[in-house]
Amino acid sequence: MDTYQKVTATVKRLIEAFLLVMAVVVFNFFLIQMAPGDPVEVIVGEMGGASEELIAQMRAQYGLDRPVLEQLGVYVGKVLTGDLGYSYYFNTPVTQLLLQRLPATVLLVMSALVVAVVVGTLAGTFSARKPDGMGSHVVTVLSLVGYSAPVFWIGMMLLILFASIWPIFPVSGMYSMRRPDGIGYYLDILHHLVLPAVTLATIYIAFYSRLARTSMIEVLGQDYIRTARAKGLPEGKVVWKHGLRNGLIPIVTMVGLQFGQLFAGAVLVEAVFNWPGLGRLAYDSILRRDYTTLLGILLFSAILVMIANALTDIAYRWIDPRMRKVKA
């Protein structure tokens, strides 16, 4: 595949991603249509009632009296300019609200992802060296536990253990009441981050250790590994250097694809730890029946996931020669 083809493939992938975003936007619009009540009803409710005329006037002002298709057009136009509506509960434009909450979620999700990938890969590789050994069974059992326990419950168990029985970590939130200055500020956030990140990582440690184990058992059975061993290389070098290099490929692929699920897990973890991110926002907006914000989060996270997927895809096309003929 030459550069020209790579560029066309990349452009095509981007167009596909864009069309998918538009599909999500339209889908979102119809969900909003189906949600009980509209902004005017909310405002009227807060005003404590209004006359029929005033309601009709406000509906006209918000364009709610227009045909559905026209409203859809207006909505798509607004979304394209980054306007996701106005949250009457938080009294802020939804886009601004989302951008405020995004960093906390990204911090949580990324730390959990790093922990999960590193620990999972190490555990999986370790257990692949002796597939029937004791260590291997321990990894299998632990990954089963990680798969089967509800993530919010793991979080609560950690809270009971490390915030109550042995109180070394804070119970909730991202900052202490009295925010320290300078380096202390970041250490304080880190201190709050440990439990939520470990909780979110648990399920993915299970996932990645299994994946790494399967992948490494396969790689370690290949001829070039036998050759490396026959050359007399130390076993550690064979496994961790020659083996892992190839064993990592499926793991890297999954990291890109797992993004969306990580976001979903973040909702539950943020609800348990009161972590001020998008997930907590989703939880709060459900409690307040704030549909505009809720649907904004859905659209926003779908777009993030799509960007992550498209980037993984494109990166693969440019990096891995074996992907050249495989349709992703």
Binding site: L31, A264, G265, V267, A282, L295, V305, N309
Partner: peptide
């Protein structure tokens, strides 16, 4: 389309 929508969020909505 259904894979890019984070499943738990969609179910919540």
């Amino acid at each position: 389309f259904f894979q890019v929508l984070p499943s738990l969020l969609l179910a919540m909505v």
